[in-house]
């Protein structure tokens, strides 16, 4: 439980971290040992986190790429042109 660790920002679709943090927040809130100020901070953080999660879920469109290897064995991603 380290509230400092998270800055309330959702980075690159890391649902695992966000949802875990939401769980942590709820657990902390339910234990009821935090000050009102902290309750509010956590609440706001949670709202931002979950909003970012939802936005990603509704806005995201599945990306399909293809792994391509050049003669030197370097990899890069190319668009999947074939259907």
């Amino acid at each position: 439980m380290s509230p400092k660790k998270s800055d309330g920002k959702q980075s690159g679709g890391n649902f695992e971290r966000s949802l875990k943090r939401l769980e942590e927040i709820i657990e902390t809130l339910e234990r009821g040992e935090v000050s009102l100020d902290e309750v509010m901070k956590m609440y706001e953080e949670g709202v931002h986190l979950s909003k970012a999660c939802l936005e990603q879920l509704t806005q995201a469109e599945l990306k399909l790429k293809r792994l391509s290897k050049d003669i030197n064995g370097n990899f890069r991603l190319i668009d999947n042109t074939e259907e």
């Binding site: 649902f15 949802l19 709820i26 809130l29 009102l36 309750v39 509010m40 956590m42 939802l54």
Partner: peptide, 27 residues
């Protein structure tokens, strides 16, 4: 399924809001 995440978020909003409101009234 993304609906599972929606459920988690929904629960969070409900519970967190409830707890925060209670805390405020208590205070």
């Amino acid at each position: 399924d993304r609906s599972e995440i929606v459920e988690i978020v929904r629960n969070f909003w409900y519970n967190a809001h409830q707890i925060a409101s209670n805390k405020i009234s208590l205070e």
